[in-house]
């Protein structure tokens, strides 16, 4: 069972990220669950969703012990860093999170300048996809090859195809693997 929270500013695509992850899991025949943050949120405020992917039946929709915390801004780290399991993974968008920020020392922190990379590739809405590349490269949830094809498949099902997404994804992988 993998427990993941995706969080960032509204508009950065964190909810779509959650949907891409459960779609990738479903296509592998796993049980998946997406739970939106529930309550009143305002435009430009924090957006987040909980994602579970498991070979077993999924019980609670709530994520309390995170394997992966996928963040795209600093408030998201403030809000959820405590919930990461010891040894768990925290993905940080170093384009907009201060460099001198301190993190827990019992978790793995992967910093990727996701916003810069997405802008360099002229795909400003692909920040989340850069970070998904980084996630694939730094966890064993999905292989990079599989997740790349699953993301394409996710958008293809919606009748959309943006070749720049794959570029963003690969740059995210490279940012971790070098």
């Amino acid at each position: 069972m993998a427990e993941i929270i995706c969080a960032g500013f509204g508009g950065q695509g964190v909810l779509t990220t959650g949907m891409m992850l459960i779609d990738a899991g479903m296509e592998q025949g796993k049980n998946v669950l997406f739970y939106p943050s529930y309550g009143s949120e305002m435009r430009g405020g924090t957006a987040n969703c909980s994602v579970k992917i498991s070979d077993k039946r999924i019980a609670s929709p709530v994520c309390k012990h995170l394997d992966i915390l996928f963040t795209l801004n600093a408030p998201a780290i403030d809000k959820f860093e405590d919930r990461v399991k010891p040894g768990g993974l925290l993905l940080v968008n170093s384009s907009i999170v201060p460099e001198d920020r301190k993190y827990r020392d019992d978790i793995k922190v992967v910093k990727v300048p996701a916003t810069e990379i997405a802008y360099e590739l002229e795909n400003p809405r692909g920040v989340n996809i850069v970070m998904l590349g980084a996630m694939a490269a730094s966890s064993d949830l999905f292989t990079a090859d599989y997740l790349e094809s699953a993301i394409d498949n996710f958008f293809a099902k919606k009748g959309k195809n943006n070749p720049k997404n794959a570029l963003c994804f690969r740059k995210g992988v490279e940012a971790v693997n070098g």
């Binding site: 949907m19 459960i22 479903m26 049980n31 998946v32 669950l33 997406f34 739970y35 939106p36 529930y38 999924i58 929709p61």
Partner: peptide, 10 residues
């Protein structure tokens, strides 16, 4: 209930 109504599953 609110949880079953709001959650997304396959």
């Amino acid at each position: 209930d609110a949880a079953i109504g709001q959650m997304i599953e396959a």
